[in-house]
């Protein structure tokens, strides 16, 4: 590699990483809203997940709760606040990136289908209650009896350090 080539690569390297290093965390720039509860079908054999584990589930890296029970992802339709929080905090993606992520995921044969889209809290509640292994994200004020609310990083919605808001 010539010296000019090396210099060119070094300048580009610095240009690309510097903004990331200097970047102010995005979470600090957004207004705090109500907590988003992670709810599952009551028979799901899990009570507590770390945020990283929730991310693995949502990224499709974890597709089974156990060998007999597949994960069924439910995600609210665009513009719902629950979806905004999931995309911002867990996926850390824009709406476009999220769509592209799932197309690529299926294309790589890593998943057979995209998350199911739900259009209202009522629909979400019905589906989580009806589908074994279902997981959904609900405004903590709208959680209804019959659903299991998971602790995230050891915290329930409403706790000071709860990460999904």
């Amino acid at each position: 590699m010539s010296a000019t080539h090396k210099r060119f690569v070094a300048i580009l390297w610095t240009m690309f990483w510097l903004p990331t290093i200097l970047q102010v965390p995005l979470a600090a720039q957004t207004a705090r809203g109500a907590d988003i509860a992670v709810v599952v079908h009551p028979d799901t054999p899990v009570d507590d997940l770390s945020l990283a584990e929730v991310r693995r589930v949502l990224l499709g890296d974890r597709q089974y709760w156990n060998s007999k029970l597949p994960v069924v992802l439910l995600i609210r339709a665009p513009v719902a606040r629950e979806r905004d929080v999931v995309l911002r905090v867990i996926y850390q993606m824009t709406e476009t990136q999220f769509k592209q992520f799932w197309i690529a995921k299926i294309f790589r044969a890593e998943a057979a289908s995209q998350p199911k889209i739900v259009y209202s809290n009522d629909m979400q509640y019905e589906l989580v209650s009806a589908i074994p292994g279902a997981i959904a994200f609900v405004d903590a004020h709208n959680v209804r009896p019959g659903l299991k609310v998971l602790r995230i990083d050891g915290h329930f919605p409403g706790d000071h350090d709860y990460p999904l808001r």
């Binding site: 509860a37 009551p42 959680v143 009896p145 659903l147 609310v149 998971l150």
Partner: peptide, 16 residues
């Protein structure tokens, strides 16, 4: 409706 905890979870029941 209250916020349910994992410890307080109840079997699936019809919504009131």
């Amino acid at each position: 409706t209250p916020i349910l905890t994992a410890a307080e979870r109840t079997p699936v029941q019809k919504s009131e």
